[in-house]
Structures are given as C-alpha cells and as structure tokens.
C-alpha cells in the first residue's frame, strides 16, 4: 500500500490513500480538517468531521480485512450504554457527529463507509481564521 495525495481535476475532491498503520490516522485528520476549512465549515463542524473521519479510519485498521469473507451487518451494532460502557464508541460517534452515514459491506470486497456533513447544518461558532485555527 502507498500513501499519496491525488488532486483531481475537480478541486473540491481530494483522494487520500493511507497505509494501514495507526500513525497515519493523524494525517487523515489533518487532511480532512484542511478540506473542511476550505469548504467553509465552521469550527465545530470541522471538529465533528475530524473526529468522525478519525474514528472511521481507526475502525478500518482494527477491523479491516484482507480476504473479507464475511459480511459486516451494520444494523446489528448496538448503541453503547452511555456512562457504563468502556469501549465501542466509534460508530456511535460517527453517527452522532455526521449528518448521514452509509455503510456498504460486500463479501470479498470489504466494507465502505460514506460519511456526510451538510454545510451549515448546525449552529456553530465563527469561521476559523488563520490567526485562530488550532
């Protein structure tokens, strides 16, 4: 696998291909934060996107497969017991922070998540500027 950043002809679309290694998840966070800021999401929305993408990448590393000979039944994933449960919050956070989540699992091909955040879908704080980001 390789890590490469490809800029497509449509400047609104960026494809980031990362190694299946935990240390590269931070790069996914940085990249999606940059993209979300460029797209004019506000600070809160950018943070939501950053967390959701990071959680999705973590799940890919933890549960990703090579042969993919099983089907991931997303509908059977139980909601965590808030305040009681020790782990298993990844998918819950993705659903909580994004506006839409599509899960497509195909035997032999793996599982694909499509996360969607709608610009302006939540009231947030001011748009980050170069002086105030991070």
């Amino acid at each position: 696998m390789s890590n490469q950043l490809r800029i497509r002809e449509d400047p609104a679309k960026v494809e980031l291909v990362l190694p299946n290694l935990p240390e590269y998840i931070a790069l996914a966070r940085y990249g999606v934060s940059f993209m979300a800021n460029t797209a004019n999401f506000n600070i809160d929305e950018i943070e939501d996107i950053r967390v959701a993408i990071s959680e999705a990448c973590t799940n890919a590393i933890q549960y990703g497969c090579t042969k993919c000979d099983h089907y991931y039944d997303y509908e059977k994933v139980k909601e965590p017991i808030i305040g009681e449960q020790v782990g298993g919050f990844g998918l819950f956070l993705i659903k909580s922070l994004m506006d839409n989540l599509e899960v497509n699992s195909i035997i032999g091909q793996g599982t694909t998540l499509k996360l969607q955040k709608i610009l302006g879908s939540q009231n947030g704080t001011e748009k980050p500027t170069h002086e105030t980001r991070n």
């Binding site: 950053r50 967390v51 959680e55 020790v86 298993g88 919050f89 990844g90 991070n134």
Partner: peptide, 18 residues
C-alpha cells in the same frame, strides 16, 4: 490535549471502572 478518540476514552473508562 488537542484530541482524544474513542480508544482513549475507552482507556479512561476502563481505568475508572476497573
């Protein structure tokens, strides 16, 4: 601390409870 994910949160919860 700039960021914590569900893995880190799970660690906190496990330590607190167990």
């Amino acid at each position: 601390m700039d960021y914590i994910d569900s893995t880190g949160i799970g660690i906190l919860m496990n330590i607190k409870k167990n």
